[in-house]
């Protein structure tokens, strides 16, 4: 017996005027998995993630999250998912505590102060709680955004560059924390990142996109082996520069 996927994308197409941002892609993510969505600028990652979050209505095809069709039935599941993205900010005039309090209430968290204190402790935010978010360093803001994305203990977590602007030590610490969270919660994580080391460490699957299409989809190890490379970054460059097709054709 197989459990239903946490995220299912079926022949998703999104066209903006004359531009096909996403071109008939399909994939499904098993519950509890961690998958990276990789590709250069304009590959269609953001549109794919926005479709999964219900922010974009597909031109055709279907997206479902935890069994709910997006965006039509998004309100059935939005309280069970969350995200972190550089495309949005949290209000800068509010203190960290105020921001987390507002989002805790929005997501229907039962004990908001308790949850804030727990996250603050785990993400080392306790001393920052009373400070305006706009006065924090970019690394501290990233941690606050991460805390916001975890306020409702989401079953589905979408992360866009989660460790951008963090120093290597803090970034490593955040990755460890995300690994523990995913294991403990059994959460499904979809990650967009340009940090290939991060992807290799966190993800058990990589979906490579280019010009709106999926050009490869496998585990990091198998991709590295198939392209005859030693790192995922080299595989990424092969695909981005068009050497991937030639290499696969030769094989």
């Amino acid at each position: 017996m197989t459990s239903s996927p946490a995220i299912a994308v079926d022949r998703l197409v999104k066209v903006y005027k004359d531009v096909t941002a996403v071109d008939a892609i399909s994939f499904s993510l098993a519950a509890g998995s961690c998958t990276a969505l990789l590709g250069g600028n304009g590959a269609g990652k953001t549109t794919t993630i926005a479709s999964i979050m219900g922010l974009v209505e597909p031109t055709s095809g279907q997206v479902s999250v935890l069994g709910a069709e997006m965006p039509r039935h998004r309100h059935r599941v939005l309280h069970r998912m969350n995200f972190e993205s550089p495309y949005v900010d949290i209000p800068m005039r509010l203190t960290v505590w105020q921001n987390l309090n507002v989002f805790g209430m929005l997501y229907g968290v039962a004990d908001v102060p308790g949850r804030i204190m727990k996250l603050a402790e785990e993400l080392d935010l306790t001393d920052l709680l009373e400070r305006p978010t706009g006065k924090l360093s970019s690394g501290q803001k990233t941690r606050v955004s991460l805390a916001k994305s975890l306020i409702n203990s989401p079953e589905v977590l979408l992360l866009d560059e989660p460790t951008a602007s963090l120093d290597p030590d803090t970034a490593d610490w955040i990755r460890s924390w995300l690994e523990r969270y995913r294991e403990a919660r059994g959460a499904t994580v979809l990650l967009a990142s340009h940090n290939m080391g991060e992807v290799e460490r966190l993800c058990d699957r990589v979906i490579m996109m280019k010009q709106g299409k999926i050009v490869d989809d496998d585990t990091p190890d198998r991709l590295i082996a198939r392209y005859g490379r030693s790192t995922l970054e080299e595989v990424f460059l092969d695909i981005a520069r068009g050497r991937g097709e030639a290499k696969q054709a030769a094989q």
């Binding site: 309100h75 059935r76 599941v77 309280h79 069970r80 209000p91 005039r93 509010l94 203190t95 105020q98 309090n101 507002v102 989002f103 209430m105 929005l106 997501y107 229907g108 968290v109 039962a110 409702n152 203990s153 989401p154 079953e155």
Partner: peptide, 21 residues
């Protein structure tokens, strides 16, 4: 996970509180 609620006065209060802050 929190429960799904069709209309939540608490979510309304959250937005009011955000602007009040």
């Amino acid at each position: 996970s929190p429960e799904y609620i069709a209309f939540s006065p608490r979510r309304v209060a959250a937005i009011v509180l955000r602007h009040w802050y």
